[in-house]
Amino acid sequence: MQSLGIDVLFKGRNLLRLLGGLWVAVRISLISVALSIVLGLLIGVLMTGKSPVLRGVFRLYLETVRILPQMVLLFIVYFGTTRLFGWNLSAEVSAVFVFTFWGAAEMGDLVRGAILSIPSIQRESAQALGMTPRQVYGYVILPQTVRRLIPLSINLITRMIKTTSLVMMIGMVEVLKVAQQIIEANRRTSPNAAFGLFAVVFLLYFAICWPISRLAGYLEKRWA
């Protein structure tokens, strides 16, 4: 049997290029997660507010984002809005925009759930002690909410990293694309390189996502 591409991996700078490709995907997800968390906190607080109009609007936003595949959203932003408004969006900006749009909705729903899970007696007791609404949020509701939220938002990071593999479809050179390029370049000398390289990409994703989801699971158990 011929080599399965492990040798190709160590040829020249191939391994470094592959890791560089992985970094492209991870970078987009980290930026998107950071933005999602900030926006999600805001949306979550607004979703638990009193105004039915506001609640309805955010509900609609959440359901819309949830029902459409992320790939469709990517296409709408990258191909659709550029056509509609005539602007130029780079693939990376589109990707960050879409994943933030999606992540903020998911995060908002998590925040909403976490806030509602705080018993109302907490809020009432704080008010009875004479705290202003701002103080009630800052000292009573948010600290407890954040504790419940951390494991869930860590989970969102792994979902985000897995989803960013889609950016290949709008022409970004991330880890899968780099793997394809390396396979193409070595087609003559090692025709079976596809096996080794795609196996490595598979394991790379696992190596990143698995520890993060283990951490989330651990925190969820400990802080429950």
Binding site: K162, S165, P191, F202
Partner: peptide, 23 residues
């Protein structure tokens, strides 16, 4: 379960479709 929950479907499909024929 851990392996498939922590990798994207896109990568899994690439492995099934492009890598497995090589073996």
């Amino acid at each position: 379960i851990e392996l498939f929950r922590n990798t994207p479907l896109l990568v899994q499909l690439f492995f099934l479709y492009f890598a497995l024929p090589k073996v």
